[in-house]
Computed example of a mutant assay.
Amino acid sequence: MSSTRRKLAVRLLRTDWSEWNRSLRAKLLSPVFVLLGGLTSVLLQTGLAHGGAEPRLDGVVTGVFAVGSLVLGLVVLALVD
């Protein structure tokens, strides 16, 4: 378990891509994760608006979804890599 934590910490907390086994995969999928998070946020907010709820702070929600999707995607990718 500690090796998994170490692997995640080394790959996710560094500012370069040198620790990744396949750094090109992580570089190419990072924008995809951000776009998927933004798309999910827009679809969720659209569904809520059609349901009668008034979306507030929609830009903040979209940013949180985009960053959350990026972090989750990179964590999963680091575990697989």
Rank of each mutant, 00 (worst) to 15 (best):
residue 6 R to S: 05
residue 16 D to Y: 09
residue 65 F to R: 04
residue 38 G to T: 03
residue 68 G to N: 01
residue 11 R to S: 03
residue 64 V to R: 00
residue 7 K to D: 12
residue 6 R to Y: 02
residue 68 G to M: 06
residue 51 G to V: 03
residue 77 L to W: 11
residue 30 S to L: 08
residue 51 G to I: 02
residue 48 L to A: 07
residue 18 S to R: 03
residue 67 V to L: 15
residue 54 E to P: 00
residue 15 T to Q: 13
residue 35 L to K: 04
residue 81 D to A: 07
residue 47 G to L: 15
residue 64 V to H: 02
residue 29 L to E: 08
residue 56 R to S: 15
residue 56 R to H: 14
residue 20 W to D: 06
residue 69 S to F: 14
residue 58 D to K: 12
residue 57 L to C: 13
residue 28 L to Y: 01
residue 12 L to R: 01
residue 39 L to T: 12
residue 32 V to W: 08
residue 79 L to S: 01
residue 71 V to D: 00
residue 56 R to N: 14
residue 30 S to Q: 06
residue 4 T to P: 00
residue 80 V to K: 14
residue 31 P to Q: 01
residue 54 E to C: 09
residue 22 R to A: 06
residue 68 G to D: 04
residue 60 V to E: 05
residue 50 H to D: 11
residue 13 L to Y: 03
residue 68 G to H: 05
residue 63 G to T: 11
residue 53 A to N: 07
residue 21 N to Q: 15
residue 69 S to P: 10
residue 13 L to T: 06
residue 15 T to W: 15
residue 45 Q to M: 08
residue 7 K to V: 11
residue 53 A to L: 10
residue 23 S to V: 02
residue 45 Q to G: 04
residue 13 L to A: 04
residue 13 L to E: 05
residue 63 G to K: 08
residue 26 A to T: 03
residue 21 N to H: 14
residue 39 L to S: 12
residue 24 L to Y: 10
residue 70 L to T: 04
residue 34 V to C: 06
residue 37 G to T: 02
residue 59 G to V: 10
residue 28 L to A: 02
